[in-house]
Simulated assay, not measured.
Amino acid sequence: MRKTARLTSLAAAGLLALCSLTACANDAASTASADSGSKGDGKGTKVKIMVGGLDKVIYLPAMLTQRLGYFDSEGLDVELLSEPAGVQAETALVSGQVQGAVGFYDHTLDLQVKGKEVESVVQFSQAPGEVEIVSNKAAGDITSAKDFKGRKLGVTGLGSSTDFLTKYLAVKNGVKVSDFTPVAVGAGPTFISALQQGSIDGGMTTDPTVATILDKKAGKILLDMRTPQGSEEALGGPYPSSSLYMQTDWVNGHKETVQKLANAFVKTLKWMSTHSATQIADKMPADYSQGNKLLYAVAIKNTLPMFTKDGVMPKDGPETVEKVLKAFNPNIQNADVDLDRTYTTEFVAKAAQSTTG
């Protein structure tokens, strides 16, 4: 999610080639400059949100909220944009291209030590929703994270949360970060192809990629962090991951708009908690199932336990994330992170009082 200074994202490079960061920030501000009046095309207050992979099940609440009409009912005209990795969504946010990002909460800690004030305003999850997969060829040799040494391990992007978590699992199990090679392979077909062709020995990914790999018998699960229990076993506690996070200054200046976003997302999370995976799949765009709706519903079912029902930060979650990042990230190891500034429950608390369905 981070590494903005390196501009590894092609999307970020293209953005910076077109306009300066200042110009982009001004453009983003103009799309939702005031809670009382910034309108798009008559649909409501315009807000742009970048998602680190719209078709990933871990970020499902973003598109589902739109499909359920909850943005519209709050008087919002939300434009959902997509990048293949959370680090690119983060880049779009801090450059001012968008007002919000749907990605992992751990970016807020990473950015704070870089001097960027960003906070989670709706916490979608209490577990990473990530799975460490190994190729069939390597399965006999990689039986735990202790065997990561000398291996090529796939992540969505360098500096992404999959990169963070892979490094933590290695260090926790006695393997130095320098002892293995992270390879940016994205998700979906690119991840699967890399696994099948031997470009990676294993890697960290999410559903529906996981479900497809298992269906194709292209790999095996090494670690499953799609449930709170799996998070506890692998990471030692709840790991708040997918969230809506925004720049703190923007939040403070647009509280009415942020409240409307929180209302819409909390309503979606409550809806998800009372509907089946099949019912959820039915609401999503047809192409998300990649021609196999049954398999897509299975992917949703396996990931559903990670989601919160109210958008509230899980107890002790920020502490677990800080512990994970401090294990391998020298910037955070040597910094005092103010966890209270990395998230807020102000908006979801009000949403809980006003949301009925």
Rank of each mutant, 00 (worst) to 15 (best):
Q99Y: 03
Y105W: 08
V102P: 05
P128Y: 03
V98A: 11
K116F: 15
V175N: 06
T91S: 15
V183R: 07
N173T: 08
K149G: 04
T181Y: 09
A194D: 08
A138H: 03
G103I: 14
A89V: 07
G186N: 04
V175G: 09
D147G: 13
L109D: 01
E130P: 04
G75C: 13
L195M: 02
G75V: 07
F180T: 06
V98P: 01
F104N: 13
G75S: 02
L76V: 08
V175K: 06
V102I: 11
D163K: 00
G150W: 05
G103M: 09
G186L: 09
K172W: 06
E90G: 15
D106P: 00
G129Q: 05
K114T: 10
N173L: 08
V94A: 04
Q97Y: 09
K146A: 15
E132D: 10
K167L: 03
S144Y: 12
F164G: 00
L165D: 13
V118P: 00
Y168A: 11
H107K: 13
L111D: 12
A127K: 07
I142A: 05
T181D: 10
A138V: 00
S160I: 06
G86N: 13
S161D: 09
E117T: 08
G157K: 04
V171G: 03
S120G: 02
L80I: 04
E119N: 15
A138G: 01
A85S: 12
T162I: 12
G154H: 04
Q112M: 12
D179N: 09
V175P: 10
A92T: 02
G115T: 11
K114D: 14
V121S: 04
N173W: 04
L109S: 05
S160R: 01
T156F: 09
Y105Q: 06
S193Y: 06
I133T: 11
K172M: 00
L76G: 00
L158P: 06
G96R: 02
G186F: 06
S125A: 13
E74H: 06
V183W: 04
L195A: 11
L109F: 00
T91N: 01
K176L: 10
E83D: 10
K149W: 09
A92M: 13
A145H: 15
G96I: 11
T190H: 06
G115D: 14
E79G: 14
V118K: 02
Q112R: 03
S160L: 03
G154K: 07
G103P: 02
I192P: 03
V171W: 01
Q99N: 07
Q97N: 01
D77V: 03
T162L: 13
Q126P: 01
D147S: 11
G154N: 09
E130G: 08
F180I: 06
V121Y: 02
S193P: 09
G174K: 09
S178N: 02
K167Y: 06
T181E: 14
K172R: 10
E119P: 00
A139P: 10
K172F: 02
F124K: 15
V185Q: 11
Q123V: 07
V121D: 06
G75E: 04
V131D: 05
V98R: 01
L76P: 00
P189M: 13
E79N: 08
E74R: 13
V175Y: 12
V177C: 08
K146T: 15
F164Y: 11
S135C: 04
L158A: 14
D147W: 00
V113A: 00
Q99P: 00
Q88H: 12
G186Y: 07
A139G: 13
R151K: 15
V113W: 06
